[in-house]
């Protein structure tokens, strides 16, 4: 629609040119770190925490907290884009690449093409497996040189920065690999199934 509609008297605050190219449509820059989630912040003691890869796999694989931390770390610096319109540039994370985790699991990569990330509580989010592989996704436990704060998803969250930030499941506890795509929590509530910020895929049908 937008067919030439102008908001009378609206000037707007332009982004600096160097930042403009890094902001997807409809997003604006945020310097703080907003928090969004659907319920209370969960709290699992680290000695009871684990991360599992399960579903259509030959044998499920489980890491406890110390085992996860013992894997080689990466420190991605990425831009993140939240569907509620804020973006944050050059965020610094520390974690383990999902490539590395999935390398330790056997599955049929011709038929198993999707994953559901699941978290404490009932939160789930679905992604094509290809979006978790190839250096595009991490399980992170550090932010800005500190342990990841529980309000931001600590002890560990998924980080998939090329999709809207709800795909980066907070308080993540594992991945379920599947042959069929299964809409997750927000994806069943009218949000877009894939969520590419550069195509502004906020809501189903976008």
């Amino acid at each position: 629609m937008s067919g030439g509609f102008i908001s009378r008297g609206f000037k707007g605050r332009r982004q600096q040119a160097d930042v403009a190219g890094r902001l997807p449509p409809g997003q604006h820059l945020e310097s703080g770190f907003p928090v969004l989630s659907a319920g209370p912040t969960p709290n699992t003691p680290l000695d009871q925490w684990d991360f599992v890869v399960t579903g259509s796999v030959k044998a499920p694989k489980r890491w406890n907290w110390n085992e996860l931390l013992a894997l080689p770390h990466e420190t991605p610096t990425v831009d993140v884009h939240c569907v509620t319109k804020w973006s944050k540039l050059d965020t610094h994370w520390e974690g383990v690449s999902v490539d590395l985790l999935l390398r330790e699991v056997e599955y049929d990569s011709t038929s198993v093409r999707y994953a559901t990330a699941f978290s404490e509580g009932d939160y789930t989010t679905n992604l094509p497996l290809a979006d978790l592989l190839g250096g595009k996704a991490w399980v992170v436990f550090g932010y800005d040189g500190q342990p990841l704060d529980p309000v931001h998803g600590g002890p560990a969250r998924l980080l998939v920065p090329h999709l809207y930030f709800w795909k980066s499941a907070k308080w993540v506890r594992g991945l379920r690999l599947t042959e069929q795509d299964q809409p997750g929590f927000w994806e069943s509530l009218g949000y877009h199934n894939y969520g590419d910020p550069w195509k502004e895929q906020r809501y189903s049908g976008d």
């Binding site: 703080g32 770190f33 907003p34 969004l36 319920g39 209370p40 912040t41 804020w86 509580g121 009932d122």
Partner: peptide, 24 residues
């Protein structure tokens, strides 16, 4: 508020939250 209520024994599944304003 959500953390206190969870601590007082209210089931997290019955507590729904919405956060508006960016903070740090």
């Amino acid at each position: 508020a959500a953390t206190i209520l969870a601590g007082l024994g209210y089931g997290p599944q019955r507590i729904k939250t919405e956060r508006f304003g960016p903070t740090g």
